[in-house]
């Protein structure tokens, strides 16, 4: 039987299927959690300096190829520029030459891109004209494209040798990280050079490790106080009682957590899609409706440590 949608071209064999693979990050992906903290940190930085409107500092986020790149696809406005593999840091230094003094450039690369163009990152460390905040999404591997064996990196030794101050973060502790970035923006303006290594950003990969280690990861919980859940009930009522008014109602009331953390589990309100990354634990829900139950990577990204919890 032929379907009206997507009719198979005549020359195609009956059993030939093309899977359309939507471009998006996995629910708990650490890259997106770091990005939230980078942006939230800027908001807090401006608030601390009591800057408003045009006086505020602005973030420019130059990323690299790989999963960090996917964030640029969403209409979430996280990534501002992505060009070629390994170019995040050096493109960032180009932007610094031509952007305004009120714009702070953060660059981000995966660990694969770090190895691909280590000299571009070294340039950012040595360029005396500007400060640098270079984030490394460290998933220990180039895993999403097939589990390649990586070239080992000792970030602490290499980054320090370039001249960076090294800071390691757990990508899922989003509030702690936002506070950290708030502090780093001031130091960037002081022309300091900082490399932030976000360890264990690939939740997909760590999820497999956890499963193999017999750890059952936890999941998010939304209480009835959630503005979206309440609003969904209201929409149901309107649909039932005043259907003509439905078209004037927005679809959602809040979605802050889902959009902020770029998480399908939250957007779909489906704990089954939750990877247990734990970012929800520190996410500042305006009504405190978000919580988490069970082990999460925000406690630790080490399977041995997680087993103990």
């Amino acid at each position: 039987m032929s379907s009206k949608q997507n009719p198979a071209p005549k020359h195609k064999a009956a059993d030939e299927i093309t899977y359309l693979r939507p471009v998006s990050n996995c629910s708990g992906c650490g890259d997106t959690k770091v990005s939230w903290s980078v942006r939230e940190g800027m908001r807090r930085f401006n608030r601390q300096l009591k800057l408003k409107g045009k006086d505020r500092y602005e973030l420019i986020y130059a990323a690299d190829r790989g999963c960090g790149n996917l964030q640029g696809y969403h209409a979430y406005g996280i990534v501002d520029a992505i060009f070629c593999m390994g170019s995040g840091a050096i493109v960032g230094d180009g932007i610094k030459e031509s952007c305004s003094e009120k714009q702070i450039v953060v660059t981000a690369s995966g660990d694969g891109a770090y190895n691909f163009n280590i000299s571009g990152i070294k340039f950012a460390a040595k360029n005396k004209k500007f400060g640098a905040i270079n984030v490394i999404y460290n998933n220990y591997n180039i895993r999403m494209t097939g589990g390649q064996i990586p070239l080992e990196v000792d970030f602490d030794k290499e980054g320090s040798a370039f001249g960076f101050e090294m800071i390691h973060i757990n990508p899922y502790r989003v509030n702690d990280n936002a506070e950290l970035f708030k502090e780093l923006y001031g130091r960037y303006l002081n022309k300091e050079k900082i490399m932030v290594v976000a360890d264990g950003v690939c939740v997909l990969d760590m999820g497999k490790d956890a499963k193999n280690s017999g750890i059952r990861m936890g999941h998010f919980i939304r209480s009835d106080e959630c503005l979206d859940l309440k609003f969904a009930k209201e929409r149901e009522r309107v649909a039932r009682e005043e259907p003509e008014k439905l078209k004037d109602l927005p679809k959602f009331k809040c979605r802050l957590c889902g959009i902020g953390l770029r998480c399908h589990a939250l957007l779909d309100n489906d704990p089954g899609k939750c990877f247990g990354c734990g970012a929800c634990i520190q996410f500042p829900c305006p009504v405190g409706a978000l919580s988490f139950e069970g082990p999460s990577f925000s406690t630790s990204i080490s399977m041995t440590e997680l087993k103990k919890t």
């Binding site: 520029a81 960032g92 030459e97």
Partner: peptide
Amino acid sequence: TNEDNAAALALGAVIC
């Protein structure tokens, strides 16, 4: 350090 970086730096500077 090399021409690729020189060109990437130039790209960053020109897109603003």
